[in-house]
């Protein structure tokens, strides 16, 4: 139960919205539910539905709509590379390909050790610092800009070491 596991966080989230806007807590609660496992389980959706007095279907509808919520367990860290137009004009497509080759995966796949999933995503508002990506993991979302494959592989090594 979310409210048992994170009582302080749940209370703090609910305090941000007026009583008539309780449902606004949906998105922050979903991020909270996703924190540990990197995905939102059916049980967590039921839990949030109960907290906000909405149906599970309504919660699932929100989860399915937004790209930063995940319904399945993938890599502990998702490397989300911007491959949109402005980044692509500055070499993002070649960067994604080289990175995938180095990691031995294709876009959308997870490395064998279960640590990394590579995703190509839409614009991340860092068009002047391409190639770039964000990592989505247990600590939240972090930007990595002006990247090279070499720099990225160093980061991958760090993540591997800290996960070991």
């Amino acid at each position: 139960m979310l409210s048992k596991k994170y009582p302080k966080e749940v209370k703090q989230i609910l305090s941000k919205y007026p009583p008539e806007g309780k449902r606004s807590a949906m998105m922050p609660l979903l991020f909270l539910a996703q924190r540990e496992e990197g995905y939102i389980s059916k049980a967590a959706m039921q839990d949030i539905a109960g907290l906000l007095n909405v149906t599970e279907t309504e919660v699932a509808g929100v989860v399915g709509f937004y790209t930063l919520y995940h319904e399945e367990k993938e890599g502990k860290y998702r490397i989300q590379v911007c491959a949109d137009l402005p980044c692509a004009l500055r070499g993002a497509e070649g960067f994604v390909k080289n990175l995938c080759d180095n990691l031995g995966v294709k876009v959308g796949e997870t490395t064998e050790d279960g640590l990394l999933t590579i995703e190509a995503v839409m614009c991340l508002a860092a068009c002047d610092k391409a190639p770039m990506f964000q990592t989505q993991g247990p600590e939240g979302i972090k930007y990595h800009e002006n990247m090279t494959v070499e720099k990225t592989m160093e980061l991958v090594e760090e993540l591997r070491k800290s996960a070991a």
Partner: peptide
């Protein structure tokens, strides 16, 4: 004032 995070949707 309160911040509120979206979750990836243009």
């Amino acid at each position: 004032l309160y911040t509120h995070l979206g979750a990836g949707a243009y």
